[in-house]
Design a protein around this nucleic acid. Sequence first.
DNA 1: TCCATGTTTTCTGGATACAGTATACATCAA
DNA 2: TTGATGTATACTGTATCCAGAAAACATGGA
Lengths: 218, 218
Amino acid sequence: MPFKSLSQPRQRLADQVYAQIMQAIRDGSITSDQPIVQEKLADQFEISRTPVREALFRMEQEGILTVTGRGSFRIRQLDMKEVSEMYGARCAIEGYAARLLAETNDAATNQRLRQAITDAEDLSDNTVEAYFQANMAVHRAFVKEANNRFLLELFDNIWNRGSSFTMFASIKSGELVKSLGDHMALVDAIETGDGSTAAETMISHIKDGRDLQVQAGR
Amino acid sequence: MPFKSLSQPRQRLADQVYAQIMQAIRDGSITSDQPIVQEKLADQFEISRTPVREALFRMEQEGILTVTGRGSFRIRQLDMKEVSEMYGARCAIEGYAARLLAETNDAATNQRLRQAITDAEDLSDNTVEAYFQANMAVHRAFVKEANNRFLLELFDNIWNRGSSFTMFASIKSGELVKSLGDHMALVDAIETGDGSTAAETMISHIKDGRDLQVQAGR
DNA sequence: TCCATGTTTTCTGGATACAGTATACATCAA
DNA sequence: TTGATGTATACTGTATCCAGAAAACATGGA
């Protein structure tokens, strides 16, 4: 039987809605000051409220939206304390990923990491969005190579929080470029083979990012 | 105005359903070999399918359920590799929490931790369930005292995975008691004030748990 | 008896209908 | 004009309905 199964789990409308709303949040057509109305969205997509609701609930659970008043959603706006905690969560995940990588210290893996960094940092344009994507791609590569799907899941969970991109928008681009440069040093730390060293290097790299963020946020 | 606001966010049926299904999973009345049928559940709860659907979707997203066939849910069964990865994720979260605690090294906090351990380990009965709860309570206390809501959220996310309890059921209770005893040592490690030491102690404690689990799982 | 085909049943995703509540708005008295 | 009260509107949660697809079952020919 040369055919591969095409029984995809019957794609749900809610998934598409989810993606579209996400996009709308990213490009700023939905802002955090207007409440999100199920019926309005349903009308725009020309579908019923049911799948829209489903997508919204999902986003609430992921911390992208927050429920206000009697049940309507808004984009969840993080205050500085929460932003800072978010970086903390990143330290936990990515720091441990670095630890695992160091403990394995596999040459081929490290090589792939270097390659990923080179690829990602070859920015096609200098927008903040491009920087954001590049930075995320690099960091995601580390977690991915650590080979633990839970870790990767948690990573995505954190990075998808609605404001994570808009937050970056406030950082001056000069600083961004500088911060991009540090990634190779992370691989170096991994290559020491010492878990704690790698973890600490990663953590302090992330904290640098946090400081940039905090400065910009004031 | 001596009245306190009673505007609670209008509690949703789906939440109750969620809790009930969760309970049913824990006490084994829903097992992983039977598919979960929305209409059946709705009938049992004597409500419509809508809130049931909502609860199920939520559980799917949390990784408690998995979608099979054309869209029906089952309890997600983790294989040994995934179980092991789950412990890895715990190392990341809880290890970093320990690091934070050590860096702060606040006497009052440490005292509260010791108290929490004493409280939790005073098992009223010797069932595996009781052990599981006690162990979770202790570990949760560490993360909670680290004072980072994201970390706590991720912690809950991991520990709520459907099978996390049923997994434990296979460990011999003798081993469990032994493993409970190690918790005070974690506070000791925190009191060294050295982040790496604390993190590593926590990680190796969790890995001990993992090894127990893996042995039992074979 | 066993396989292939057609038919019924089951069950999901999505649309629509309905009820309840908070908000917005209008109306009226001081 | 302003504040209190009644009314309309907006929007949510829940119930019900409908169409489509998989799965189970039955039926008939070799």
